[in-house]
Design a protein around this nucleic acid. Structure first.
Lengths: 204, 204, 204, 204
DNA sequence: CATGAATGAGCTTTCATTCAT
DNA sequence: TATGAATGAAAGCTCATTCAT
């Protein structure tokens, strides 16, 4: 059984290596210009090795995406569970997501580049188990926020989520643009994002 | 000179034909799965003819994007000029953009699929003259709105714009999802979008 | 229309070039070890050019096979039509087939190598329009021979055909083996083949 | 030495296992579409194990073929030795071969698919010790039949053999085609095949 | 010896781009 | 200028073969 678990652990190691390489290459070149050869080389494996772990390029891409998303969500959810009310949960969601993005810029690049396309495409994130689980989870929190009077009841939870993510994206992209040394942590923007979502940007 | 202008007019006609075809095909298949042959066939030209008007696939794509965007903006700007204050201009921008999207669903599909990627990529919209002109124009309006007290002064105009566009996109995507007969016009959503931007979605 | 026919003629020329190359390469290496690159190079075209004329390797192979077979049969049928009775037709069939084989040794090699496999496989010759037309045509001649009392009536025409072809193949293969200068024309064997088929090889 | 023979016996067992699997897979998929992994899996060994017993795929294939053929011939030869004259031997050869084919349909499929190709190819059966031994053995029988006046003397023994095999193949293929329940045993066809060979199919 | 993960050469196929007509 | 056949680089993917365990 130790034997077995070592094998399984090795397997996961390979997957991780490939994921890491794929994350980098996909972020660098985008889905279509990235080649399996590139990724294999980056991971220091032979081309064929990639195919021992992933049926094809699509599966690698989608796996990478959902795996990473799951990781992010499991981290974020854990922190969210500590918050006492829905508003706190949303704040936590924003803050911790930003932390994760900052730690995983390559992933964020992929997330941004493909997120909207995936929303429309049939094979997109939204039709993925992981994606749907996330959507349901977040929708529940939004509903709770609506019950608690934090969010107006005439908004569809799914769309609230879309808007929140859109605002977050816009903030991270701005942060991207001012690339360089002087920029502060992304997480510091979470309060402003929440305020922007809840109260808007009205001058009065 | 009449000779010359006829030639030039013909030239523009070819471009338009190709643009129309490209818009359709790109929207249908996405950038990478669309082939130049597809587009040429749709436009009822030979493959090579496309290359008499566009250096390569990238240029065709970007030209289509910016040309269309210019068209949209020139329409929207004209309507905006009729509004008396900055808030009115913003309302007009949202409303008329939605009208344009509804009339040009293929273009919107492209817009959504690629917009974010283009924001990051070196070759993206933001580094385009048209894109920068638009950005400056809209930034001015936002600044005016800030002077008029409609928008808080501590927001960077560019980002306000990003957020506004993000919210609009989220609305149009929702509208897309409920595809079918019973859905109402997009333009009707403009008030809600502005309210969402300015006042947020706070329950109180 | 001259324009059109020139184009069409050119098209046929390309096809012929590719067929000739394919015939050679397939005969040399067999179906599986032959690559499209090989064939294209032999025909002095680029790889992609082959795909302008044939959907894929299978289609090229089958087209080559059936086209060639059609050519052979049209030649053979014409000569057969001159024979007065069924026996004469069969003799003509054998003789002229052998002539064709001798003139198209590469094709014969393919024919021999793949014929039996194709008989079994679903995609085989026997399910091809050309193949079925040939089979029906020959079966009719065998039936006529049976009516004329040349062939016993208790044989299934299709099988008579199989046996005839089998005997012919065995003769051509023997002729192949004694490769070299001293060997005589294949066509000279036709009488012996017919006798072998009709009367067997009995010593008395 | 008992030790040695146990080892050797085990070795033969592995070979047999692999042969059985290979026979099945090759018959099912054909030489090229069959993969070593398929065969190893079918035999419940690891891929590499196959290579401990066979240099490469080709050798496995050829070994399978010749081994099986040797088995068949040793069975057939034993029965043939009981026949009193050459004609009886030939009859036995046909009958017992058919019995063997019926018991080893997978092998027969391979035999049919590849037999002719192997005849031509340099690596073919005919250049194999087993193949040559068989050929000599059968040629001797044919010669004896010629001495006994059963077969005309002006036929080359080798070719008589080819024709006989060709006719047998045509019968078995016909039997294959009428796949189903109602078909009778192959062995029953042996008389007709001999008659066909010796006396032909002449109507009178 | 047995294993099976890893290798990487090599295949088919696509398609942006060119250029002779 | 318009054409579209020809090009050939490059991609995804397979699988015979090897070799560390």
């Amino acid at each position: 059984m130790a034997e077995f678990s070592r094998k399984e652990r090795d397997r996961q190691l390979r997957r991780s290596d490939i994921f890491a390489a794929a994350e980098h290459i996909f972020a660098l070149k985008g889905y279509h210009k990235a080649t399996i050869r590139d990724i294999a080389k980056e991971a220091q494996y032979a081309t064929g090795t990639v195919y021992l772990h992933f049926k094809d390029k699509d599966e690698l891409y989608l796996s990478l995406f959902t795996e990473k998303l799951k990781t992010m969500l499991s981290i974020v959810e854990e922190k969210m569970s500590l918050a006492k009310d829905a508003k706190g949960k949303l704040e936590t969601f924003v803050r911790e997501s930003l932390v994760f993005f900052e730690d995983n810029l390559d992933f964020f690049r992929i997330f941004v580049s493909e997120a909207d396309e995936m929303m429309i495409a049939e094979k997109g994130l939204r039709n993925t188990p992981a994606g749907q689980k996330f959507e349901r989870y977040m929708a529940d929190i939004v509903k709770q926020a609506q019950r608690e009077g934090v969010i107006r009841s005439d908004f569809e939870p799914t769309q609230v989520l879309d808007i929140l993510i859109a605002i977050m994206k816009s903030y991270v992209l701005k942060w991207f643009r001012e690339d360089g040394k002087g920029r502060k942590g992304l997480a510091g923007m979470s309060d402003m994002i929440i305020k922007c979502l809840l109260n808007g940007i009205s001058g009065r």
